[in-house]
Amino acid sequence: MNFDQAHVIVLNGVQTMSLFSCLFLPFFCALVAWLLKAEESTSAGQKTEPDWSSPVLDRHGQGSSLFHTWAPSIKIATLLIAAFVIVSLHTLAWALTALFCCALCVELTGMSWTRPLRRLAALGGFLGMLVVIVPLTSPVQSGETVLVLPGLPEWPYSLAGAHLALTIVCKAMAVALLMEPMLATSSLPQTLQGFTDLGLPASLNQMILLCHRYIFVFQEEMRRMQRSMRVRGFVPRTNIATLRTMGSGFGMLFIRSFERTERVYEAMLSRGYQGSFPAEVRQKITNMDLVKGVLFIMIAAILLAGDRLLPLILF
């Protein structure tokens, strides 16, 4: 590859190591924090059962934060706009700011960090790949700085590519963190009702609720089936027999789900279902909801304006 016009810096092994550890630092921290949390919750042993006799907003935390009291429809609309604004950012500095803001939002909900961290961990694979591949495969522009890694003279590490990749990482993590305040501070039915109020068809809302409910049922069925395979000596391996067995297992799962649809549908009909679920009582939209909406849109607008008008270049 020809990168004569570029600014070339040759790195040694130690420098390479430290570069990559810097790049992976956020994931590493998230993973460690999550593991620590998980460890904490198991060592604590018996978690106290939440009080199910009053309406819970979400099973992972009752709260009275500004997100919990925000009418779902306005909350979703606002944060969805915010999410789109965040993914439109181009510069690392502002993406980092957005990440910080979103982390602040999670903190404001007063909820446990376990689930936000688990979300970040779920992103790890995809983003990790981006961080490695994009800088190595980005076309090199003239006047750009590239690092040459030991043993990879053909694959210059482009700093512009690294900037791009890290910006994406920050944006993805920011939106992932925003998911919890946006979607987990009301119960799922309320959240989906919020989507319906925004114009999503009510039938789709009901489909999502039903699908969500039966995921747990089928997960249990699949778990049981796998258990009954296991106690008969089945150990999944990389071979055709494993795939055949799993194929039968999946087939059985699908058959049972088709059979269950009929039964669920009959049970619904027998209790007077006429094509739509009876409406829930809607949450009224107050001025406070709108004020919060305006506030968050303003923050998002500042991020975007800063990104376009004041692009701080970190490296």
């Binding site: 609720l209 039903l210 409910r213 039964r263 049970a267 027998s270 007077g272």
Partner: peptide, 29 residues
């Protein structure tokens, strides 16, 4: 609305995301 059937598998009957909604489903209908 006058004839109720209780089928064998309770998971077929409980298709909402809280017990409250499940029990309220019929009366609301």
């Amino acid at each position: 609305q006058k004839v109720g059937i209780l089928f064998q598998d309770p998971d077929d009957h409980l298709f909402c995301n809280t017990l409250y909604d499940d029990v309220a489903f019929g009366p609301r209908n």
